[in-house]
Design a binder for these strands. Structure first.
Lengths: 164, 164
DNA sequence: CCGATTTGGCGGACTTGTCAACCTTGTCGT
DNA sequence: ACGACAAGGTTGACAAGTCCGCCAAATCGG
């Protein structure tokens, strides 16, 4: 067994015990991102943000640009640029929005849907794999917990003083 | 009440109900990052990764470069560059590692500790604020859940077929 | 109905993050 | 003890994300 490896692992565990939540989530996000990128690269040539947008469009629960952008938490600028890429590559179609002329609707082209169908089973399997790592009660609570945190993370002014 | 806002909010809620875990975490991470950047910017001029490194060093639970890098989930390259910035700005000190000459140890300078002391209460308040958004049982489970996910996220080959 | 404000999207400058090649040091097998 | 291999760190080229100001469309307040 590597001597320094053991030391490092012990140090890591010691730090994590007292870690702020935001750090844990950042660490997790890094690993998830790397894992997702590896999976996507193995089965095509989409980038991670491109895939995310395609995935949400493919869920067929909303097609307005704002709804999609908000749910992904994307920056306006980044969203705009990524959609342009997808449109140029012929994966998505940009249509007029029926009631709001500032927004647009997004739809998958045949090629876009093919990419979605190719990747979805892989990424769904990963999601299942992640969920299986959790205990049943953790599984049942994690979604609402993340949602609550997400709302709390939107507050810009934090009650600084100790408010008990 | 804005008409389109209501539509968008409804669409967002509809999507989130069936959202993969990784998307939720990404969305959360974006918001947390923006919130943290805003707080840091208000009380100094550190970047988010710089702050994270300082924060971990300040925890005094480990000072080896590898342990710090691993716990933050940083890329080797990014870590190296950010440490250089901190060293240049005189916030951290780079020392020899006692048993491994590939690594180094990190320590805060007086100026680095001052920055830490200035920012820590703010960020700790935020952390408390986030934790208060959770129910008691969510609070007690979230850490172990995130840790398990973090481990699962390191697996590179996912059992694709249904393995049950 | 009209100005003020908000929301949505775009473009460009800039910062961050990512990836691959490289060198050094440590570790393992024999 | 020594050669193969893994782990740590650095660098540079490149991709991704962020921030800013801009303009158009929609909403709100009289």
């Amino acid at each position: 067994m590597p001597k320094n490896d053991k030391d490092n692992a012990a140090a890591v565990a010691r730090i994590e015990a007292a870690f702020p939540l935001s750090f844990m989530i950042h660490q997790l996000e890094m690993k998830l991102g790397a894992q997702a990128r590896a999976l996507i690269a193995k089965h095509g040539d989409l980038t991670l943000p491109q895939w995310r947008i395609i995935r949400v469009i493919g869920m067929d629960t909303a097609d307005g640009s704002t709804a999609i952008r908000k749910v992904l938490g994307f920056d306006k600028s980044q969203f705009s640029k990524t959609v342009s890429q997808l449109q140029t590559r012929g994966l998505v179609e940009v249509l007029d929005h029926p009631t709001d002329r500032r927004q647009f609707r997004l739809a998958l082209t045949d090629e876009g849907r093919a990419a979605l169908d190719r990747l979805t089973p892989e990424l769904d399997a990963r999601n299942d794999f992640l969920m299986q790592a959790l205990s049943p009660e953790e599984r049942s609570l994690i979604r609402s917990a993340l949602l609550k945190l997400s709302i709390a993370a939107e507050t810009t002014d934090i009650p600084t003083g100790s408010d008990t």
